[in-house]
Amino acid sequence: MSTPLVSLQDLSVQFFGSRNACALNAVNIELGAGEVLGLLGESGSGKSVTLRTLLRLHPERTTRIQGRMLVDGQDVLALRGRALDFYRGGTVSMVFQEPGLAFDPVYTIGQQITEAIRAHEAVDEASARAQALQMLERVQIPQAKRRFDAYPHELSGGMRQRAMIALALACKPKLLLADEPTTALDATVQIQILLLLRELQRETGMSVIFVTHDIAAAVEVADRIAVMYAGRIIEQGPVGQIVRTPRHPYTAGLLAATVGTENRGQPLLAVPGSPPDLAALPPGCSFAPRCVHASERCRREVPPLQSVGTQALACWHPITPLAEAA
């Protein structure tokens, strides 16, 4: 693989203030151009923090970031001023979970997309408006001309999320960060948005990091899935492998706990316990207190993330070891 588009090396993020929390612990992610990575995890596992760190959205005063972040050859942590402004939206752009909150309620969506285009490109108002309208058509908003002058509250949830995607793609970013873009939507609309994202990704060839807690949504769009738990990546691999032969007990537990047609009426194989407190992580593997395979070693030492080819795993007692498949 040539130089990856995104490369996070030993990225750690700590928030400090009244309480300290380690939101990310030495996360390594590499993403090639045109690849779609699904970042899967429960709430508090650090998936959204990863995305926000990539855009440097955390307040600098209360956040300590360690490690390196390279996106498209730029050292993101070194960006300042105008360079950072161009990086946000120009190179990397984000779709948020709650489109109702991400838009400014006092401007029409057309104005907001036009503004974003003009902030990044030296074009006049008329052609920026034409581009913005074209973007709205591209995300398949019906009657795009009319919706151009609509305020965010006049649109339905699905339509707003489409407008959000249009805004994010208006400046042709190389990397799109999607933070649970379909969680707030109905099932019939969710599938539409997933299909749209997949189609746009294929057309533009951009890379996507798709954050979700829903395995099924990740399976629909991602090429590769990275499973996060308590600020660490614990397993990574192609979609098919993760779904069919999960190696980490947590991934296996998540899959078993997914309600399907087969297990109707029977008790679900739930993962016991709840995710750990990020302010007081256990010394060893953070999943050890909930793991049925946990041994003394798991409670003492943090398992390192070992990778073979496209797969990676951090576990002392995996269900199937890595080397077997390699």
């Binding site: 829903d214 998540l254 008790p267 194989l269």
Partner: peptide, 11 residues
């Protein structure tokens, strides 16, 4: 609820 917790509550 998160998926793993959801399963516990359903049980």
């Amino acid at each position: 609820l998160d998926k793993s917790v959801q399963a516990q509550v359903l049980n």
